[in-house]
Design a protein around this nucleic acid. Structure first.
Length: 273
DNA sequence: CACCCCACCTGCGTGC
DNA sequence: TGCACGCAGGTGGGGT
């Protein structure tokens, strides 16, 4: 579910509730997430104050006062919701973080692809260490992208989804950015000119910014920390619109499967080179 | 090394 | 109504 914009929207909503507050304790549901620390390990967070809530790619990192990092990832269906204690009984709740001031942070995840792991002081979580730069990082330029992909034949869409290259872009925003940049998802990365990389980079940044400003994309289940849906689904140009007319030229939007994921594109606006 | 496939889960919509 | 199937916003391990 959540890509960079959704995670950033969640971060902004949660930060004022978490930062500066002590974690009183944690409780756990009966099922575990795909990647979840042992209770004894996670309970080391109890008694510590949250210093800062930050984001890298699609990961949320809560830095604790003794230097631990609580790493959270929402997978496909995860939610982080803040309630006043007692938090309501909800299905698929796997972790509840009890906070100072009578607040509870609830991790709900139907599909359980999420992560919730406490890393000791001085350690960058490996999953975060291997991420590429943020799309808004100044080191990411058209020339940098061209150099990175020189001589490679990988499809552009698959490249955008690879967080080790540039972090945080998921299936929705990869499709939307490719449409905005008028590039076909199957184009080999090594074939793009520096000009085209520049166009794509601007499109990526514009789409991500717009989605954050709209509170993210809610297709079936995304909610921010206060339980609100996003609105960017109203602005989607191609994602999920197979067979519907392109908003620019009216041609039917097509769907193509790449690396097991659906790519939506306009065959006319994004003509294969 | 570069890249792809698939597992990991649950739920929902569709078509028979 | 029921059932089988395909599909879903992500990630990483293992295979080619």
């Amino acid at each position: 579910m959540p890509e960079l914009p959704e995670v950033e929207v969640i971060r902004r909503g949660l930060a004022p509730h978490l930062e500066g507050r002590h974690i009183l304790g944690l409780s756990f549901g009966e099922h575990r997430l795909r990647e979840q620390g042992e209770p004894a390990e996670l309970l080391r967070a109890a008694g510590q104050r949250v210093v800062e809530l930050s984001r890298r790619g699609k990961y949320l990192l809560a830095r604790l006062e003794q230097g631990h990092t609580l790493l959270m990832h929402l997978g496909m269906s995860g939610r982080l919701l803040v309630f006043h204690e007692p938090a309501p009984e909800l299905p698929h709740v796997h972790i509840v973080v009890h906070l100072e001031g009578g607040l509870a942070l609830v991790f709900q995840d139907i599909r359980r692809f999420g992560n919730f792991v406490l890393h000791p002081p001085g350690v960058t979580p490996p999953a975060v260490a291997q991420l590429g730069p943020e799309p808004f990082d100044r080191k990411v330029t058209a020339a940098w992208l061209a150099r990175l992909t020189q001589g490679r034949r990988r499809p552009l869409k698959n490249f955008l989804l690879d967080g080790r290259m540039v972090a945080g872009i998921g299936n929705i925003y990869a499709c939307e950015a490719l449409f905005a940049a008028r590039l076909h998802p199957a184009t080999a990365v090594g074939d793009l000119t520096v000009t085209e990389w520049g166009r794509l980079l601007r499109a990526i940044r514009k789409v991500l910014q717009a989605a954050i400003a709209r509170g993210g994309t809610t297709i079936s289940d995304f909610l921010d920390g206060s339980g609100n849906t996003g609105l960017f689904q109203l602005d989607l140009t191609v994602y999920g619109r197979e067979g519907e007319p392109c908003r620019k030229c009216g041609t039917a939007v097509e769907r193509l499967v790449q690396a097991g994921r659906s790519s939506f594109y306009c065959p006319r606006c994004q003509a294969q080179v």
